[in-house]
Computed example of a mutant assay.
Amino acid sequence: MEKQKRQILLFLDNAPVHPPDIILKNITLKFFPCNSTALVQPMDQGVIKTFKAHYRRQLVQHIIASADVAHTADDIVITALDAICWIDLAWKSITELTIQNTFKRAGFQISSGASDSISRETTTADEVIVAQEQEYLNELDKVLKYVKVGGDTMSASDFIAVDNNLPVFNELDNNNENILLVNVVSNDDTLNDEEPDIEKPPSIPESIQMVHRLKLLSSSQYPELHSLLIQLQSKLIDAYLDSNIVKQKSILDFFKPIQPGTVHRT
């Protein structure tokens, strides 16, 4: 960029990790006013809240499903793979229209020269974002009513905002040569040296049998799940056919060989 003699204007918020005394050659830094991040950053206009609502709904559902067989809180295990899958589902729930509306809400829109037109577009964007936020909050409320914290239930709005004031960065410590210290627990400090039990995944044939039992459940009690289970069963069968488990059989596999000296009667 310097060779191309490009002049760049970079907007930053006032987080401590963005020191204002940095001097750059072809980049000019402009800092937003204090406490304005939530108003000017598009992702803060609905995307993050919707994402968190969807992710935490998956989290609560997992806790509820695990609570029936758990004896203590330590028995409810959340793996990194669980979190990754929930993140994937949560992000896929954010539509392209939602992202477009969050940018409009933050003021990023093409000016047509008519202020009243821009105002109407912003109002429409606000309505769409609020409606989608409320939809996911309602879905989260449906599962939160089965969970009590200290004897009381927590609303979806409170659950989403529970970590709003949680620091997402470490401040530099000038008394320690600006070295960031992180408290970690080494493996040597663990009380239990035994390796955790790793649950063995079922084989594809076993999974197909599980789906068959689930179809019996859906047929008798939850018919709305039947079509989903049919799709899952079809995918499992495709995986089974494509795997090395299926071996080409010959006609000899269906008949017992005749032992020498055996009289075969017709």
Rank of each mutant, 00 (worst) to 15 (best):
K200M: 07
L225C: 07
L217N: 09
S219P: 06
H226T: 11
I198T: 03
Q231T: 14
I230R: 04
L216M: 08
Q231H: 12
H226P: 00
L217K: 11
P202D: 12
M210R: 10
Y222E: 12
Y222D: 11
E224C: 01
L214Q: 13
M210E: 13
S227P: 04
E199C: 03
L217G: 07
P201K: 03
I198K: 03
L214H: 05
P201C: 01
P205L: 06
L228G: 08
S203Q: 07
Q209N: 13
L229R: 00
L229C: 01
M210P: 05
M210W: 10
I204D: 00
L228S: 14
M210K: 11
L225Q: 06
S219K: 14
S227R: 07
Y222C: 07
E206K: 08
V211Y: 04
V211E: 03
L225W: 08
M210T: 13
I204W: 02
R213L: 10
L216V: 02
H212E: 12
P205C: 05
K200R: 04
S203D: 10
H212M: 08
L232F: 09
L232W: 08
I198Q: 05
S220D: 09
K200L: 09
H226C: 07
S218G: 04
R213H: 12
P202I: 10
S219R: 12
P201L: 03
L228M: 11
Q231S: 15
E224F: 00
L229G: 00
H226G: 04
E224Y: 00
K200S: 08
I198C: 06
L217Y: 12
L228V: 11
L229A: 00
P202W: 08
E199M: 04
I204A: 01
E206A: 11
I198G: 01
E224W: 00
E199N: 06
Q231A: 13
S203W: 05
P201Y: 01
L225K: 01
L232G: 10
S219M: 13
H226D: 11
